[in-house]
Computed example of a mutant assay.
Amino acid sequence: MRAIKKIHDSEYRPIADLITYSPMPTQSLEMIDPFLFLNHHGHQTYPAHNRGLPFGPHPHRGMETVTFILEGDIMHKDSSGHESVIGPGGVQYMTAGKGLIHAEVSSDQFKKNGGDLEILQLWLNLPASKKMMTPNYIGLQKEEIPVLELDDAKVKVQQLFGEWNGVKGAFEGTFPVTMSTIYLDKGSKFEKDIPTEENIFFYVVRGKVTVNSQEVDYRQLVEFENTGEKIEVQATEKSVIILGHAKPFNEPVVAQGPFVMNSEAQIREAYQDYQNGKFGSWNG
């Protein structure tokens, strides 16, 4: 059994009128290499004629985002020419690489009609060798993501990266990473062996579960030791989990605002390049 080091609570960090909780980074947990940052927006209900998500055009370099849409939608647009509206159950995967500008806002329909919203964004680091790669974006709707069923279909796994029981993930990662969104009925369970040398990202989005005999509530993140391989999960309530694992890069991480690099000099260069228009042009 994989040993648990600590269970971390999320910190409340509202953004405009958007309910937001973050379990990482916090005072108790900086990162779980190569998983850098998580924002959990909602659950909340927007009225009709709302302003929607507040994430207008902003730059990134040196990292990736994985965005999970549980309720509501996101309209994505970036300076590399990608555009999409992804709805409930869909996932967006963006590689910032050497730099782009993007906006993540609500669709016109959502702003007009309102509705439920719950969205999470996870930042993945990029290894030093790939920080200046060409930016990329893929947005997939729920129907386009393969699903694996466990425990007589009481556990449904959206396989995003890597493989599980022969089911290949929807996205090809820029480095070896395995990641799933897992939906569990009350009383259901699953187990998984994860190599000791890989770090685990385990976050409870909804509900309550028991992991290796420890209870974990929603909006809590589990930090594991690198001892043992097996994790055993049982759902005390109907639950949703994000589970990822990958080998750590063990490289210096210097993060400032939207840029994640390996040195202060590279951060200064990122700001300079952005100001000099090297992240592409933004047209509305």
Rank of each mutant, 00 (worst) to 15 (best):
G99H: 11
T181S: 00
G139Y: 08
E172M: 08
A270P: 11
D78E: 09
Q256P: 00
D33L: 02
D108F: 02
I15M: 13
A255L: 05
T210C: 11
F190C: 05
I231Q: 11
P47W: 05
F175G: 08
P54W: 09
G169S: 15
I101L: 12
N136L: 08
K131R: 15
A265Y: 06
T178Q: 15
D273R: 14
Q159S: 07
P14M: 04
P135V: 13
M132R: 07
S80C: 10
L150N: 05
E264A: 14
E269Y: 11
M132D: 11
F37C: 07
N125S: 09
L124F: 13
G99M: 11
A235C: 00
S188N: 01
Q92L: 15
D217E: 09
K5M: 12
K186I: 00
Y12S: 06
K156C: 03
R61S: 12
G81C: 14
E191G: 11
G169P: 11
R219N: 04
M94R: 01
F171P: 15
K247A: 14
Y271P: 13
N165Q: 04
T227D: 10
N113Y: 14
H41P: 02
I19W: 05
N250K: 13
K77Q: 13
G72E: 08
H8A: 06
K156N: 08
H40D: 09
E144K: 15
G207W: 01
W164G: 04
E197D: 13
R268H: 13
T210M: 14
E225I: 07
L120A: 01
T134C: 11
E197P: 03
G228R: 04
I86E: 02
E197Q: 10
E83F: 14
K186S: 00
F279G: 05
K189T: 06
I267L: 10
E64Q: 15
P34T: 06
D108W: 01
S84H: 07
W164F: 08
D151L: 04
G139C: 07
Q158C: 01
V216R: 00
R219P: 02
M24G: 08
L117Y: 07
K238R: 14
G244K: 05
E225P: 01
E172N: 10
M63I: 06
A3L: 03
L140H: 06
A270Q: 07
F249E: 10
G114Y: 04
K98Q: 13
T178G: 11
V253Y: 00
K230H: 10
K131A: 13
N250F: 12
I7Q: 12
I19D: 08
L140Y: 09
K192P: 03
G87L: 06
Q214V: 09
K77P: 15
P127I: 13
L18H: 13
K154Y: 12
F202N: 02
G89A: 15
Q214R: 14
D152T: 06
E71N: 04
V222S: 05
